[in-house]
Design a binder for these strands. Structure first.
Length: 150
DNA sequence: GCCAACGTTGGC
DNA sequence: GCCAACGTTGGC
């Protein structure tokens, strides 16, 4: 069992959207490291923290789980999509995404400002590689963040 | 393979 | 809207 944190812009797709539709193919990731995590490492049942970025109060808002292994991201083949990639070919897809299933919305979200101040979270990828949109967290980090949500 | 230019992310 | 950090691209 692995633990992950996945960022999303709530203006595009939020924890409330996930709650409503239950399961979502995670499309639009255009970073190789994030893609590799999804394509090569994620397994069904892995725990996911849902993080809202580029919004009024960035932070962790919910819990989800990996519900399906990575599939080719359909948006890469759609010329009308902002995630279209002219260099991607169907027989050799460049971008992949897992499916994510809603688990719960945190009663009390954990803002970035709180994560930043927490001594146990200083080594999180959020701070060592802040631009990564999908990253691994340790079990200790995962549990610490949920403890902060209480 | 180096590295400058450029684009994107994302907090503030 | 600004800007720092960082990833990608492409010329050489």
């Amino acid at each position: 069992m692995n633990y992950w944190l996945m960022k999303t812009e709530p203006g595009e797709f939020s924890i409330d959207d996930l709650k409503r539709i239950k399961e979502e193919p995670w499309t639009g990731v255009r970073n190789y490291q994030a893609r590799n995590y999804m394509r090569d490492t994620m397994a069904v049942g892995d725990a996911v923290l849902i993080y809202h970025s580029s919004c009024e109060v960035p932070g962790v808002y919910g819990m989800a789980k990996v519900s399906h292994l990575a599939e080719p991201d359909a948006a890469q083949f759609d010329p009308k999509s902002k995630y279209y990639d002219a260099k991607a070919r169907r027989e050799a897809p460049r971008w992949w995404g897992v499916r994510v299933r809603f688990v719960k919305k945190l009663a009390v979200p954990v803002p970035l400002s709180v994560l930043k101040k927490d001594k146990k979270l200083q080594k999180m990828f959020l701070f060592t590689n802040g631009r990564l949109s999908v990253g691994a967290v340790t079990k200790a980090e995962y549990e610490r963040i949920l403890a902060l949500a209480r």
